[in-house]
Write a protein that binds this DNA or RNA. Structure first.
Length: 308
RNA sequence: GGCCCGAUAGCUCAGUCGGUAGAGCAGUGGAUUGAAAAUUCACGUGUCGGCGGUUCAAAUCCGUCUCGGGCCA
């Protein structure tokens, strides 16, 4: 395992690449394949796996789930057979997950692949998960379900006032209209009994140098191309069992039920909407998601754009 | 053929007493460190169906034509 010097208490994001200092050639640098949904990451990942003698590691928040294969557009059995795949269908739909949990799952898998002398091909579109994996997590307390439930019952204004009182600096940096961001900042203050602004402060500087040692691509397509691929995929999903899949998912975590298509297909199953409406709702949600992903990956300048 | 209703942003529609128009959705751009397929911010010029007319001024009133939808023949 290569440990980067000078990253201090960074828990992760520093074990994946050889350090420049020792230039450890025995560690195989992972290869990242990113891009918006429906851009064709899986196909390229398979190609790369064959070219680089690699194994594929999932970086998609919803393909982690078992029983959500069709809706989450996970690799098919045929694709899975072409090379070793990791972290697909490993969570129960009743479970929740988060970025740190993902890293905890992914890091051992990646180092193990490296230990076998194979190339980890990390592919997926969950920007935050990838960011945690590549750049590590700030030393912050983990989410607390009880506290979150309590905060969910408060108005945004109440939360904002509390944050301003506990940590005015963090409040000034936070988008105060964004309930998620406000409650997370507040949660950090309450759980750690420290200021979120202090805890987050040094972190960004520490991660600044990491990008230069990462390698990977971000797949780019024109919007019309991407939109037509999305429409085709939605149609295929619905034609090939997405309704049965959702019907079978009775007990799901609130996390899991946020999968695009889940609510829409449930409404279709209940007869609240018709098939064309369902398809269009899924398409629109997917297009919007793809746009957000493009915005996210645009900032990951270490990724080499690859026009598909 | 006669009568009635409608025609306004890509879509669905609002628009008061005449003062040249604005919502939702879609779309575009941004943010983003433990819910992220989440959450959130910003962005609205369009022959107001066409042509005439009245008026200082027409999406708005009048006439007429076109296209929908309905009712009566």
């Amino acid at each position: 395992m290569a440990k980067r010097a000078g990253t201090g208490d960074l828990k992760s994001g520093n074990i994946l690449v050889p350090t420049r200092a020792c230039d450890d050639r025995s560690v195989v640098t992972p290869y990242f394949i990113c891009g918006p949904t429906a851009s064709g990451k899986s196909a390229i990942a398979l190609e790369m796996a064959e070219k680089l003698d690699g194994e594929i590691v999932n970086a998609d928040a919803f393909q982690l789930y078992r029983g959500l294969e069709i809706v989450s557009a996970a690799p098919s059995a045929l694709e899975l057979a072409r090379c070793p795949h990791h972290l697909y269908g490993i969570l129960d739909p009743t479970e929740s997950t988060d970025a740190q949990l993902y890293v905890n799952l992914a890091e051992p898998v990646i180092t193990e692949i490296q230990a076998r002398g194979k190339t980890p091909i990390i592919t997926g579109g969950s920007g935050l998960y990838l960011k945690f994996l590549t750049h590590g997590a700030a030393p912050l307390p983990t989410a607390d379900a009880v506290l979150r439930a309590k905060m969910d019952s408060q108005t945004l204004e109440e939360l904002v006032l509390q944050l301003i009182e506990l940590d005015p600096v963090e409040a000034s940096r936070t988008a105060l209209q964004n309930r998620r961001f406000v409650s997370r900042a507040l949660e950090i203050c309450i759980l750690s009994d420290q200021k979120a602004s202090d805890l987050r402060d040094g972190w960004e500087a520490k991660t600044a140098a990491i990008s230069s040692n990462l390698r990977g691509i971000v797949i780019q397509r024109t919007r019309p191309d991407l939109h037509s691929r999305i429409a085709l995929r939605t149609k295929t999903m619905l034609d090939e069992g997405a309704m049965e899949e959702v019907a079978a998912l009775v007990d799901v975590s609130t996390n899991c039920e946020k999968a695009i298509g889940f609510r829409e297909i449930r409404a279709l199953l209940k007869g609240e909407i018709d098939r064309p409406t369902c398809e269009e709702l899924i398409n629109a949600a997917t297009r919007q998601y793809a746009k957000r992903q493009e915005t996210w990956f645009r900032r990951e300048t270490w990724l080499t754009p690859q026009v598909a």
